[in-house]
């Protein structure tokens, strides 16, 4: 009976380890690939280690629990490394099947920047009128560019 249970656990573990790597090979982009091997870590190695605990505990040499140490360590570290990898992938702007969320600037900030830009353009125009400079055209060209840059920065 125990033999059958152990065989079931070992087969489950091996199959899930296999499926995890299959996902690593077959899935399309990095973010979906990241999700495949987590099955191998938790279910696969987890059930293999439980099988090992039962196997070595029933051989008459006392309870053997140091396999649980590996399980615990893997369960703690797997999400941490997955998080770090996802952060690195986002930093490198890897291609994704899903659309990336677009970051929007808060409306108050946009209004504030627009107001500042308008004030600046007013200042420039009044300066030009006061100085009677003949080179009006390049100044007019440069003001919309400046406002665009400001908006892009915000």
């Amino acid at each position: 009976m125990l033999d059958y249970f152990l065989s079931f656990l070992i087969l489950t573990g091996a199959i899930f380890t296999f499926i995890g790597s299959l996902g690593l090979v077959r899935l399309k982009d990095f973010y979906t690939r990241l999700h495949g091997p987590t099955k191998a870590t938790t279910l696969g190695v987890g059930s293999l280690l439980i099988a090992s605990v039962i196997f070595f505990s029933t051989r008459g040499t006392g309870v053997s629990l140091h396999e649980l140490l590996i399980t615990l360590f893997l369960f703690i570290t797997a999400p941490v490394s997955a998080h770090m990898l996802a952060k690195a992938a986002l930093h490198l702007n890897l291609d994704s099947l899903a659309k990336m969320p677009v970051e929007k600037a808060p409306e108050e900030k946009v209004k504030k920047v627009k107001k500042e830009v308008e004030e600046k353009t007013d200042e420039i125009q009044t300066d030009e009128k006061a100085a009677h400079v003949s080179s009006e055209e390049p100044a007019k060209e440069s003001t919309p560019q400046n406002s665009n840059e400001k908006l892009a920065d915000s």
């Binding site: 995890g20 190695v45 396999e67």
Partner: peptide, 24 residues
Amino acid sequence: SVPDRVLALDTLYVNTIALLVLFG
């Protein structure tokens, strides 16, 4: 990409642990 290779290394060591436990 490079993160793919790092992920592959990560999977590789987890699989090695499974192999060692089975061998044990």
